[in-house]
């Protein structure tokens, strides 16, 4: 008997939905920020490589939104495009802009910030995906298997950038150190499950927040030791995206992402 057919208590369903929205919205926004770099990466080879990661991440978001659709929450495209900022459950880190300027003009994006954010985010995603492989909910286990194959390369890619830029020119190091501070400041909610923490953990959908965060730190440790850096200390969240608290940068992103879809949400595009 599949999990969808299995009788789920109202509480379990609530926990499950909350978790999947967090996973879906995280990848959706992370992919969007990556896609703004298209055509503008530091060199052409990187443009091709990082846009692969961006595509994979959008593919992962699409799988999660489809899962929510299957749970009866509405069309995947509506869930991705139409929910206002206060209903979104992504972490604040994924919604942050890449730097100054709009992608349609001549933006001054910060590659150091993108490297640090992407490395920390993909490594955190890996800690979650590893745990989801043992989830009590079978469709999540299935997705975790598919995602982990691609994620292996994502983490490797961003880790290499992280190590290289921190072992290079003084300018690069100084930009990376500034980026590290910006990224860590926003990490307060990355490992949070928000208001549904107790339920999500009780139903064994995924490991506890503390365990995931600890696994993330352990995965970073060798790299940080090699670079003689102190491991980051995650602050208390100023805003908790898991509870719908966001910066204005999110609504601007949603407006762009849904600009065409909103013209007519009933038609086929």
């Amino acid at each position: 008997m599949s999990n969808i057919e299995r009788m789920m208590s109202a509480e379990e369903k609530k926990a499950l939905e909350a978790l999947i929205f967090q996973l879906a919205d995280d990848d959706f926004l992370f992919s969007y920020r990556g896609s703004e770099w298209l055509g503008l990466a530091p060199h052409i080879e990187e443009d091709v490589a990082s846009s692969s990661i961006t595509q994979d991440s959008m593919g992962h978001a699409a799988m999660y939104y489809k899962l929510l659709e299957d749970l009866g929450l509405g069309k995947a495209d509506d869930l991705a495009h139409l929910r206002p900022a206060q209903e979104r459950k992504n972490s604040v880190l994924t919604e942050r802009v890449n730097g100054d300027g709009y992608y349609m003009d001549t933006p001054q994006y910060d590659w150091a910030y993108t490297v640090v954010r992407s490395y920390f985010y993909t490594q955190a995603k890996r800690a979650k995906i590893n745990s989801l492989r043992e989830s009590s909910y079978e469709p999540l286990r299935d997705i975790a298997v598919k995602v982990s194959m691609e994620l292996y390369y994502h983490v490797m890619h961003w880790k290499l950038w992280f190590e290289q830029l921190l072992s290079s020119t003084e300018e690069a190091k100084s930009k990376m150190v500034s980026a590290l501070k910006l990224v860590v400041d926003d990490m307060g909610d990355l490992f949070s499950y928000g208001e549904q923490k107790e339920l999500i953990e009780r139903f064994d959908l995924i490991d506890s927040e503390e365990k995931i965060q600890n696994n993330w730190l352990e995965a970073l440790r060798p790299t940080f030791e090699k670079l003689k850096l102190d491991l980051p200390i995650i602050p208390e969240p100023k805003l908790n995206g898991r509870n719908g608290q966001h910066t204005d940068e999110l609504q601007t992103a949603i407006d762009t992402l849904s600009e065409v879809y909103r013209l007519d949400t009933a038609t086929n595009w």
Binding site: D47, T54, V260
Partner: peptide
């Protein structure tokens, strides 16, 4: 690319530009 009007179209146009 970001404005593509569905998840499916977003994936398609990302792959194309890449």
């Amino acid at each position: 690319v970001p404005k593509a009007p569905s998840l499916y179209r977003k994936l398609g146009i990302m792959a194309k530009v890449q």
